[in-house]
Structure formats: structure tokens, C-alpha cells
Amino acid sequence: MASASWRKLHNAWEIQTRVIHALIIRELSTRFGRQNIGFLWIMVEPLLFASLVGLLWSVIKGPEEHGISVVAFAATGYIPLTLFRHGVQRSVLVFTINSSLLYHRQIKIIDFIFARFIIELLGCMMAYLFIGVILIATGYMPIPSDIRLFLAGWALYALFCLSICLVLSPLSEVSEVMEKFIPVTTYIVLPFSGAFNMLSWLTPSMREFLLYSPFVNGMEMMRKGIWGEKVTAYYDVWNPVICSALLIAVGLPLCRRVRRLLAVE
């Protein structure tokens, strides 16, 4: 009995990974085509964002702040932020946009969310790697002092972004009001994203308040992982884990419910 249900789960896993793989390829070829650099475009936007903001900040704030290169600090803040913003934008009405694919019964609606999120994730990671190598080579960024802490922070940040998408996608299908609010919300989130400063630069009461934000916890981990002893970081690993788990627990049933109501042309 146990082995039968295990095999069933294993089967379902195989089908879904195949479907998500196919969806990613399909999405990349519709979005970027096969001309010039093709799918490498996915990393261009985060890259441009990070480098231009970095330049802008270094003009406004000078080359260093709290002993850290402003360009490198901007890059480490903006790339995760791009992941969040793009992830959210791409998840709006994702079921309706892809509804003609629901004709194939092995495609489940959360595959659409996963496929798009993975594309954004890959794009941002490639951009991060690219910009990181350049900044390290030019001496703006140190070689990461604890790469595992950095990766753990990135994983938690990404997990939280994904869990937001899992809630927003079904909500955007049922409510047009919701859909209109999403651009504003991504803007309101900015101060709680941890992109602009370390918590140790703030007042204790502000710090305590911002530690409620899963973004900030992930961001602090990433920056501690890069700069190590040069910065003081405040974070709680459990905050993003618990927040993500809660959102997923809401998002998955919501997706299921919306799937039942979805009218496919």
C-alpha cells in the first residue's frame, strides 16, 4: 500500500517536472525568441537595474558607506528586489494567460507559477553571478566570507517570493481590484525589503520592527554571507520559513479553488 502510493507520488513528480521543464522552454522561446542573445535576456534586466542604481547611488552617496562599497551594496539589494517584483508581476493573471494550455490535463495551474518563477529565479541568479564576478574581480566586493549563509539567505528570500506568488496568482484571477492593487503593493514593500540598508545602521526600535519582514531577514543573511566580519547582521532564520509556510498553506487551496471556477475558452 505504502509503496503503491509512493510510486504514484513519484510518477506525479516526474510528470510535473517534465511539464514545468516544457513550460519553461515554451515561455523562454515566446518571450525572447531565438534571435541574438536569446534567453540570456532574462538576466539583462536585473543586471541593468543593479548596475545603474549602483552607479546612481555612488554618485549621490559617495563610493563607500559604513565601510562598504556602495555599488556592491546596491547590487546585493536590487537583484533580490528584482526577483520579488518580477515574480509578482509575472504571476498576475497567469492562469488566464496560459489557459489554452489547460487543454492538456497533465498541466496543473501551479505549474504556470513555478515555470515563470523559476525563469525569474534563474535570470536573477545569473545576473548575480555575473555582477558578483565583476565586482569581486575589480575589488568592490570581497570574496563571500560564508557562501553557505549567503545561499541560505537567497533560498529563503526566494521561497518567500514564491509563496507570495502562490497567493497573488489565484487572487488576481478572482478579483480585478486585487489585480489593480498589485503594482502599488510592490512599491509599498520597498522599505520593508531590506534593499537599502543594513539593520545595524538603524535605531533599535526600527530594527525590531523591520525584523518582522521576511525579506529583511533573508537580505541580512545574504549580506552577512558576503561581507562577514565587516558588517553586523540581525536575522531570524525561522521568520521567512514560517511566513512562507503560512502563505503556501493559504495559496495552494486558493489555487485549487480557482481552478474549479476557471472558465477556459
Binding site: A22, R26, T30, S100, L101, I107, V264, E265
Partner: peptide, 20 residues
């Protein structure tokens, strides 16, 4: 309606369907 992605070519749709 349905089953195809209009912006993709016939071959790309065939590829997609072969994959899934």
C-alpha cells in the same frame, strides 16, 4: 480553441506536446 500556443510555430507546438 485551445491546446495550442498561438505565438509559437507549428513545430514548436509539436515539440511542446512531445515533451509533455
Amino acid at each position: 480553441a485551445g491546446g495550442f500556443q498561438g505565438s509559437l510555430t507549428g513545430y514548436d507546438n509539436a515539440r511542446f506536446i512531445a515533451r509533455i
